[in-house]
Design a protein around this nucleic acid. Structure first.
Lengths: 338, 338
DNA sequence: AATCAGATTGGCAGCGCTGCCAACATCTGG
DNA sequence: CCAGATGTTGGCAGCGCTGCCAATCTGATT
């Protein structure tokens, strides 16, 4: 497979043109189904392409096409993580929409590191994409400078709490926190705690917590206690953290989790310790994971339109509309745990 | 942000050269830190780059560099899904290793569709990558033809049960099935059932089932019953499917699941129905999800070296060794459910 | 039969960068 | 002071494709 005849040159468009007995530009037009050409020409080109096994070189195509109206059918996407299923979902939504419009995407994963995000922005811009989709509204000064200087469309997705550079697609994490608090208060819970993962990295989780905390305070039942697990969110972290939280405050009657992974861990802790949910302790999550819905008692959580956010981000990016913020909202799923 | 001075041309290498008062090739050498140049030149180039905000055009770079020894520092990766956390994990492992070697990656998601895989292979090859990482050993004839004709290194990952085109990195899914069966038999389970998702799409799951079934038969306790949920794996599907399986065969004492997602759903079914695990019914999964380890009773499952598979796949691809199969093995995690 | 709009086609100059090579510059030792 | 080795540097031809434009062909019309 890998030991080939010495550097066999790959088939080029010129080879196809020669084989089909037509000009290069004719082949190019046929292949892109653009401009006009006769049925006969089309067949001959198709035959030559098949016979020679021609694969277009997109690198060359994009280079040549750059600067023109058509431009590069390419967008870059930067997400902070692949571990949390949320981001693959955003990716799915975006790439599906992008595919439909004939766009390719190049993906970067920042690991929640703003510095790495800046480096990735540079790396993705060097592909000369038509646009860039990034996560969240907070970026280093250098990142913002690069994005601005690039002159391309930018979509910041997921979060609408703040000012965007260009297009923003998402929902208000702050409002999610507020609504979550209101729900718990309305259900009669009064001694409420919080279990989260590293908030300095996941700024959206921090915003939810802020909204949550403020609403509780306004209601006259301030957040009783918080427990932050180091590192990224996971069921194991949630389970351990809820244990610690309850050890410190056995009197809590409800706990708000930074997301469903953590909440699932919390639920497991309750099962293991024989804590009745929601009678003795109510649990509230975030993100409506599939798994959370399959639990014996469906988790009370917030469903966010992840696929839709990705899709709308992609559409707005390629559509060429004005700079604006699109709030796609969210939905509270009552469940059985709070 | 998006309304710029009419088509401001982006800064090119030539602009930098002019600004720094040196030749283009000199700037190119400095930027790639290749060849020799004086400290003074380096500083002047660095200054010009910073002042003009130059971003190299990788498209042009790769085009120009193609055909040479250095070649394109790019690899394509095709995975069947983003929904199952397994594949983002493989991606993480691969991209981490790739980054280290200065490679970029372009990703394609086939949705378990062989036809789409073939299309993706074409799309990725058009980037003229140095190599391609695909999932599994089974591909359409057209896909194989394209891969062979490409002349680049190919890695097929995850599965070692069969013949690869070039490099293969993974483990034996068949052996996983066999070992899972042996474990259950050794623990004294006799009336064993299977709950899976769509096997026609997920060929690796099918191989595990084959190994599992054969080993049970050899042990004299053939697989009692199978229940296949339509669609992809999920906790909800696993929960529902286990319900159906037990309705048909209430006498089962153990169930093997196509993966941990499904098993988790099965566990939830047991919790909801008050079925004692593992006394009344034992559960056995596959893939060692984080969540499964956080359950009140850790799931008995198989840990697969996902990150490592991705990493080794990337390393082998770029290293230039011989075509061979690398079996990275797996590990049975005893857990408490079987 | 001549004319004309529209369809079809080919030639060729780039797109921005890298590889190659020749041209210098600088440094050794004899 | 010079040949030879080593270190630096710039010029320029592509890489494979697309955009543009002029050339050619077609059929219909007058």
């Amino acid at each position: 497979m890998n030991v080939h005849e010495p550097e066999r040159r790959l088939v080029t468009l010129a080879d196809v043109a020669r084989a089909a007995g037509v000009g290069e530009s004719t082949v190019s037009r046929v292949l892109r189904n653009q401009g006009s050409f006769s049925k006969r020409t089309q067949d001959r080109v198709a035959e030559a392409v098949a016979r020679l096994g021609y694969v277009p070189n997109r690198l060359a195509g994009m280079l040549a096409g750059s600067g023109s109206t058509a431009g590069a059918k390419l967008v870059g996407i930067i997400i902070p993580s692949l571990t949390n299923i949320v981001f693959p979902d955003l990716l799915r939504g975006a790439t599906a929409a992008l595919d439909r419009d004939g766009f390719q995407s190049v993906i970067g994963v920042s690991d929640y590191d703003p510095e790495r995000e800046e480096a990735l922005i540079g790396a993705l811009l060097s592909w000369r994409p038509a646009g860039l989709i990034v996560t969240g509204l907070e970026h280093r000064a250098g990142s913002v400078a690069r994005l601005r200087a690039s002159g391309i469309r930018i979509v910041e997705m997921i979060d609408t709490d703040g000012t965007g550079l260009d297009i923003v697609v998402g929902f208000s994490n702050r409002a999610v926190g507020c609504d979550s608090a209101r729900h718990l208060i309305a259900r009669g819970y009064r001694r409420i705690g919080y279990v989260g993962h590293d908030i300095t990295l996941d700024l959206r989780a921090a915003k939810r917590l802020t909204g949550f905390r403020e609403t509780l305070a306004e209601a006259g039942h301030p957040l009783a206690e918080t427990e932050i697990a180091p590192g990224p969110s996971s069921a194991a972290a949630g389970r351990a953290a809820l244990g610690r939280l309850l050890a410190a405050r056995p009197d809590l009657d409800a706990v708000y989790f930074s997301n469903d992974d953590m909440a699932l861990g919390g639920y497991f802790h309750c099962l293991a310790d024989g804590i009745a949910v929601p009678e003795r302790l109510a649990l509230f999550g975030f993100n409506a994971l599939d798994i959370a819905a399959a639990m014996p008692q469906p988790l009370t959580t917030i469903r966010t339109p992840r696929l839709e956010i990705g899709a709308v981000a992609a559409e707005r990016l390629t559509a060429g509309g004005p700079a604006e913020t699109v709030d796609l909202g969210y939905e509270l799923i009552p469940g059985a745990t709070a």
